[in-house]
């Protein structure tokens, strides 16, 4: 790497996170045990899969806050369809829903040119309502979780590695190729770096943005399948607050909120680091809402690091 001499703000931040992690390993018994690590990885794979898609959107210079409530919606749909129709419906319909929602988001942001944060915030609310209406506020359950192949997706193992982790790694490889080695990937970086200049260079910026939202939605649909297969139940607020967790993981990894800079590898680092920190907090026995405070600190810290490393470049 070129700037070995002086650490950038981001490197400092990663160093700080690793330090926290090591301290955690030293003080929290069992944090680094094999069992705990596989469990942790299994848990983060849902966040991870979503984060892969969100990475595209963030590199393109936008935000997608619908992922949390989209996960809720897809999960309740998967669970109810599993018993009512068939497990096959449970693994296909959520993906279609994800795709459709991605298209709607893409339409709002790329075609109508709405502020992505507020527009997806509105969609978040709409999806919440759809999930509520779908479940009528009831919990959705799979009656006999032990008697369906559907459970393999979330609960199975292959050579001691949990299947969700394998799915996450597979999707990570695919998205990394898409982002790093194809023309579309190039165009995502261009659009995020400077949308006007991209248009002037004959890149169809709107299509690129639209596609990014489609990817984000589709991957969230897939994540929902993994989630519902692992839990075998879902509520209309299962994914509540997930959008911020995902966002903190993506930017903790070093993908810039200003757009035009980032990568799948970075996102994986961010997801794993955040997963460890949250896992450590749980192992210490702190309540779940402490994680929110951690997210707050992490986001502000990361954004500060992002700005400090670009000095003067202000997010619009």
């Amino acid at each position: 790497m070129k700037d070995i001499g002086r650490p950038s703000a981001r490197q400092l931040l990663i160093a700080a996170a690793v330090l926290v992690l090591l301290t955690g390993g030293a003080t929290v018994p069992g944090l680094f045990s094999f069992d705990n690590i596989t469990q942790m990885l299994r848990q983060i794979s849902v966040t991870g899969i979503i984060a892969l898609g969100v990475t595209f959107v963030v590199i393109a210079g936008r935000l997608d806050l619908t992922v949390g409530s989209l996960l809720s919606l897809c999960a309740v749909v998967a669970i109810t369809l599993h018993d009512e129709i068939s497990p096959v419906a449970a693994v296909t319909v959520p993906i279609i829903i994800g795709l459709v929602v991605g298209c709607i988001n893409g339409f709002l942001v790329a075609i109508l040119r709405l502020n992505s944060l507020i527009a997806t915030l509105g969609m978040l609310s709409v999806l919440q309502a759809v999930a509520l209406v779908w479940t009528s506020g009831q919990n959705a359950l799979i009656d006999r979780p032990e008697a369906t192949w559907f459970a393999v997706i979330g609960r199975g193992y292959l050579l001691d590695v949990p299947i969700p982790v394998l799915i996450f790694l597979l999707l990570a490889a695919l998205t990394a190729i898409l982002l790093g080695m194809t023309r579309f990937g190039r165009e995502v970086f261009s659009v995020g770096g400077n949308e006007i200049a991209s248009r002037f260079s004959s890149i169809a910026a709107r299509q690129v943005l639209f596609t990014c939202y489609m990817i984000s939605g589709t991957l969230t649909g897939m994540a929902a399948i993994v989630f519902s297969s692992r839990v075998m139940a879902a509520q209309n607020n299962s994914g509540s607050g997930l959008e911020l967790q995902v966002l903190s993981a993506v930017i903790l990894g070093g993908t810039s909120l200003a757009g035009g800079d980032g990568g799948i590898g970075r996102t994986i680092i961010g997801v794993v680091l955040l997963g460890f920190i949250q896992n450590a907090l749980l192992l210490i026995g702190l309540p779940y809402y402490v994680q929110w405070l951690v997210s707050w600190v992490v986001i502000i810290g990361v954004v500060w690091a992002d700005v400090a490393s670009r000095r003067g470049r202000v997010l619009a």
Partner: peptide
């Protein structure tokens, strides 16, 4: 504003308009 993506490298900027051919 219109000509370059300042945050990207020289090569990436050079190929921006001819990605289709590459």
């Amino acid at each position: 504003e219109q000509g370059l993506v300042l945050g990207l490298g020289a090569r990436d900027n050079t190929s921006m308009a001819s990605l289709r051919r590459l």
